[in-house]
């Protein structure tokens, strides 16, 4: 079945099947925690941790799981790693844990993770699943960073906490509020669609 090369398997998460811009999965953290880049990065890393380890476990025990209870099993596995991530952040990075609030536990219901288990890890080898998980995670982190960079620069005038806009700049508070998330995501999706259309036309 596998027809893609290893490189393609890894790179597809960045653009062709990017979780945020192409698959529109994981919208809850994408919209909720991208008001500052540090939060976006932390959420991306936490999700990556959960995705990679869940893919590893699921792809290695896929033969044992009866298909009738596969979703329940995936959720238990995912929830385990989410709880570990949540406790770890609370213990070692309390400010970030406070900023992300309920959105760390909510990684359990992030569709990217369950989606990758169902669509990929349950059908592929451990090696391929890991490569897929790494690619998807990096694609997700990239998406979160782009979104949070735009929102942080316009909403706070800063980039990763460093002042980049001059004194003249009046922060657009709407950008760090929920409407700003929707507006930015909408514009980015339109851009992504346009780029995709252009590249397709050229091919």
């Amino acid at each position: 079945m596998p027809t893609k090369s290893i490189g393609e398997e890894f790179l597809k998460g960045f653009w062709k099947e990017n979780p945020i811009f192409r698959q529109l999965l994981g919208m809850c953290p994408t919209l909720a925690v991208t008001n500052a880049m540090i939060n976006g990065l932390a959420m991306g890393l936490a999700t990556a941790f959960v995705l990679i380890f869940s893919s590893l476990v699921v792809s290695s025990i896929k033969k044992l799981i009866p298909s009738q209870v596969r979703i329940a099993t995936y959720i238990v596995i995912i929830a385990t790693f989410v709880t570990i991530a949540d406790r770890f952040l609370a213990a070692f990075f309390p400010p970030i844990s406070k900023n992300l609030g309920p959105y760390v536990p909510l990684i359990v219901v992030n569709c990217i993770i369950l989606g990758r288990q169902e669509a990929f890890s349950s059908k592929n080898t451990v090696g391929r699943s890991l490569i897929d998980a790494f690619g998807m995670s990096l694609g997700f982190i990239l998406g979160l960073l782009i979104l949070s960079a735009i929102r942080e620069i316009l909403g706070f005038g800063t980039f990763f906490g460093f002042q980049v806009m001059g004194q003249w700049f009046k922060p657009w508070i709407i950008m760090i509020l929920p409407p700003g998330a929707f507006i930015t995501l909408g514009i980015l999706l339109a851009l992504a669609l346009q780029i995709e259309r252009k590249t397709k036309a050229r091919r």
């Binding site: 044992l64 009866p66 099993t73 238990v76 609370a90 070692f92 309390p94």
Partner: peptide, 28 residues
């Protein structure tokens, strides 16, 4: 088989989590 798989996954996960919980509790 369904019961066996779910139970063992649940048990493993529970055991794992209680260890993590114990390790981080004090620090939190």
């Amino acid at each position: 088989r369904m019961i066996a798989v779910l139970t063992s996954v649940g048990l493993l996960s529970g055991g794992f989590l209680s260890t993590v919980g114990l390790l981080t509790k004090e620090r939190i």
